[in-house]
């Protein structure tokens, strides 16, 4: 077995394959389909201070090689997560990364502090960019000054590995990435979904109840790959690549352009066992070539 370990902040991941927030439930949903111990880690559904019901109406629609979603961050809230959900996944020998979301700096800080009290949580992933929530999300996600001050404020209350998840719905993602780095983030993860829309020609209405939603799936991979490459060149902290990863080839592409780890997203919906296949595939790929993970990362010829 090749050494697949990667270091992100104070966390050592056993391998660079993670699952993306919002595509992996709280974890146990996938028990029948894969060995959760095999994963580098998984990001939970985005947790807010209080429970959220999410958006009404149609929440998902398929698009060419992808999907739009407007779930609206439905989640059980931090209290239920810590008291009921976390104990169910605590025994998994894998990194638990809690994705979290709030509407204000005050709530982001409060939530980060609360989550940091749990020894079992390995890392926090700050979601600055959910496109499906009317208040807050896009404001935090696009303004570099806000990102820096918010990251710094959260940094003060947590010793856990702090990952800032970045929105692609900005003019220049390297600017927001640098802001997160300046604020004290241990890593940035990108990209979150691209904002899109779909209409139903028959009814002449928007297909999604929320009208707009986040585009994910293989369709967004070229955009994500470009943004990860640009970001990895300008920040010193690790970059976690996300966007349309479904095959071993996709994983290798992201590692080549400089991602230290990757998150598998909507592909989990198609094949709930795909993340473990990717871990095993990456191990074989490196072993066959006698190559180390470190040598592979960022080795694209420019």
């Amino acid at each position: 077995m090749t050494d697949l370990r990667v270091h992100i902040g104070v966390t050592t991941l056993k391998n660079p394959i993670l699952t993306a927030s919002g595509t992996f439930g709280y974890g146990p949903e996938f028990e029948p389909y894969l060995n959760l111990h095999a994963l580098g880690g998984f990001c939970t559904k985005g947790i807010s201070l209080e429970p959220r019901a999410g958006n009404p109406g149609v929440r998902i629609v398929e698009t060419p090689s992808g999907m739009l979603n407007s779930i609206g961050l439905e989640n059980c809230g931090s209290r239920v997560f810590l008291d009921e959900m976390l104990p169910k996944i605590a025994a998994y020998d894998t990194a638990i990364i809690v994705n979290f979301y709030a509407h204000s700096e005050e709530d982001f800080v409060k939530l980060a502090a609360t989550l940091s009290e749990s020894d079992r949580i390995d890392a926090l992933e700050m979601n600055l960019s959910c496109p499906n929530v009317k208040q807050g999300g896009s404001v935090f996600g696009a303004d570099p000054r806000l990102i820096e001050s918010l990251t710094a404020a959260v940094r003060k209350v947590t010793k856990k590995t702090l990952i800032v998840k970045l929105s692609p719905n900005v003019t220049d993602i390297t600017v927001t990435a640098r802001a997160a780095e300046a604020g004290g983030a241990d890593a940035v993860s990108l990209i979150n979904t691209l904002i899109g829309a779909a209409v139903d020609r028959r009814t002449r209405r928007f297909t999604l109840g929320n009208k707009i939603g986040g585009l994910s799936g293989p369709a967004i991979k070229p955009v994500a790959l470009r943004m990860v490459w640009q970001t990895a060149r300008v920040v010193k902290i690790p970059v976690i690549g996300i966007g349309g990863i479904a095959t071993l080839g996709d994983v290798i592409d992201f590692l080549l352009v400089g991602a230290r780890a990757v998150q598998v997203g909507s592909a989990n919906f198609v094949n709930p066992g795909v993340a473990q296949d990717l871990v095993e595939g990456l191990d074989r790929y490196l072993a066959e070539r006698g190559e180390t993970l470190d040598a592979l990362i960022g080795s694209v010829q420019e």
């Binding site: 439930g25 996938f30 999410g54 929440r59 979603n69 439905e74 919906f269 709930p272």
Partner: peptide
Amino acid sequence: SRMGCGIGACLGCRVN
């Protein structure tokens, strides 16, 4: 209902 995953992960099939 429209479903994304069928296993309770995507939360796409919630109906009121």
